[in-house]
Design a binder for these strands. Structure first.
Lengths: 344, 344
DNA sequence: TAGAGAAATTCAAACGATTTAACAAGGCGC
DNA sequence: GCGCCTTGTTAAATCGTTTGAATTTCTCTA
């Protein structure tokens, strides 16, 4: 037994209240100037008095636009608890809200992919466009969007070789900044912990290596560990592995702040001092990076802005004011206490 | 100029492909057994071949149900970055997804309230029900839902004196457990940092005091500071205030983990040792509580479960299988290294 | 083989808006 | 007083489903 809801005020009721036709009411409510001022006022007043709310389902049906955007995130464990996604979603929300759009959440879990929900959400008109945050290298299904020219935008990621729209922080530049910072402090043995399930993660790793090698560091002095959860546990485990095999390391470079925090935790547990014994650097500048002990040196990516601008670009595409988007944002170094001169 | 989308396959096309009427197709697709098996097979096959996707807008319009739930959070700064909300939303998502519902996000910012968006989202049929996470004492507008008997459920909060549905962790019990833990360790001078903009926060404070007083601790040994952002900065600032006025404190009890982390950061900055000099205890057991230095003693609230079950209850109400919900979940102490015997 | 009854299918009216073409009324020139 | 243009308003079609009533088709019995 489904609960009945009080039936809502419709355009027809306003019409009969004002002794005009439903068409007139619709015209007025949509701001048409072709209707006489006195009639307009009458209609507006009645709409306000009756607390009229347009039925969005009906509007969407006839206009073929739901004024909703789908925001999809990868199926990580408790993904919405991750500040990384939270910051981006906050940015997306703000922009969407200002444009009168609603946000629909989705997680790219198994069934989402198997049942082609990623396509259906657009096909069944629940959403007008889709923002996919931080997809992974395995998400090849995204390529299906290419042929159909669906309104999709990859957020803080990209798909090499495809024509899919994206807006992302420049992870190559990020790697460059990190490498330069650590090298400047005299580090010559740096352990890298990096997510290997995203193209941006791989870019980061490769560029980091390239910059270090250009400065004369040999590959053997740059051991690395790949991981895919990007969380504190990953950082902890990876650091244990790196430090036990390479005790000569003087710095740990983590692909994000959460992993860096896990790394610090391991080092401190082992009685090592950060940064005197080992420096640790992260990426993202999540809010809590300021409150770790010691404070975490990291890269500010402005994820909120990434979200905000991604949403803006997608809306431009939806409105036909733009046909594609491939945009990169610049990161900046945030100096705190977790990095220092290499021990000698 | 609005982008045109390829027109979708409709029920009519399937009908003409199968030489049956649209009604038949609809009936088949909705699982009616009144249609002959051979016809059913024919329709299913055509639907699959044509990759038919029902237009959800049309379905919603005729059924008056959008199969969407609105999830609303308070207008805190970058609110989706807060693990507290993230955990709850993750839980809500899982339950909703399993029931075939979508999640619509909303933030209760100024315009949301001024324009009565909280009512409109239900009135205009964008959502069938609403989950409001952690409302504050100022959110008196929620009382409007009372008269209309709208399908609303307050998540991890409640509104004293109202008949609004809620599902929440038992914050009085939480306070009891925290107080007992600290008292057992010999603490007699405890500083309290607590959010004062929620009823659950006030409950926590008052119950904490009550339990302590029953054990013979005088109110003057229990200084407290109120705050409203519930973040690390709040905890940091509040601890500075408490410790400078009351250096005799041997423990800091924070209303959540983020504030506790801020508290620890302040104490360590000041050269104090946690827990030898001052113990710190939090509430929530957010994932990173395990990775702080030292690990944070806290209360496990199972926020994921709070979200999951809240969503479940709301769906039960929507389906008429339940008319109200006022449910409390039990918290549990998680022992880590940030609390220890009081210094003497 | 008619006729009743059951089974299968279809009709037609919603649902609540938007939008276009058509219509009514008033003003103006000639 | 007739045609023509303007201005304001409305009827009707449409969007893609669902659904109760009506209709057709089939099956079985007398």
């Amino acid at each position: 037994m489904i609960q009945k809801r009080a039936k809502a005020v419709t355009i027809k009721e306003i019409a009969s209240h004002c002794d005009v036709s439903p068409s007139t009411v619709s015209l007025v409510l949509n701001g048409s100037q072709k209707i006489k001022k006195s009639t307009r006022d009458k209609v507006f007043k009645a709409a306000a008095d009756l607390e009229y709310q347009p039925n969005e389902m009906a509007r969407s049906l006839v206009s073929s636009r739901s004024r909703c955007l789908s925001v999809t995130v990868p199926a990580l464990n408790h993904v919405f608890s991750d500040v990384y996604f939270g910051e981006i979603i906050s940015g997306i929300y703000q922009e969407a809200q200002e444009a009168g759009y609603k946000i629909l959440l989705d997680i790219a879990q198994e069934s989402f992919i198997a049942e082609k929900e990623y396509l259906n959400i657009l096909r069944n008109r629940r959403a007008d466009g889709m923002l996919y945050i931080a997809s992974t290298v395995e998400d090849r299904f995204l390529l299906e969007f290419e042929e159909n020219h669906d309104p999709l935008l990859l957020v803080n990621h990209y798909f090499p070789g495809s024509s899919l729209n994206y807006l992302s922080v420049d992870y190559k530049q990020a790697a460059r900044l990190c490498a330069e910072h650590l090298l400047k402090q005299g580090h010559r043995h740096i352990g890298l912990i990096v997510g290997t399930n995203t193209f941006t993660g791989l870019d980061f790793r490769d560029t980091f290596f390239k910059v270090c090698e250009q400065k004369g560091i040999s590959k053997t002095s740059l051991p690395w560990t790949g991981c895919s959860d990007w969380d504190e546990q990953d950082g902890y485990t990876a650091t244990r592995k790196l430090m036990s095999r390479h005790p000569e390391l003087t710095a740990i470079m983590a692909g994000n702040d959460r992993m860096a925090i896990g790394a610090m935790r391991y080092l401190i547990n082992k009685g090592l001092h950060v940064p005197k014994d080992v420096s640790v650097m992260g990426v993202d500048n999540i809010p809590s990076a300021k409150f770790t002990t010691p404070g975490l040196t990291t890269l500010k990516m402005d994820l909120f802005e990434v979200g905000r601008r991604s949403c803006k670009r997608l809306l431009e595409i939806l409105n036909g004011r733009r046909t594609e988007c491939r945009e990169l944002l610049e990161p900046h170094v945030i100096l705190r206490e977790s990095t220092g001169p290499a021990r000698t």
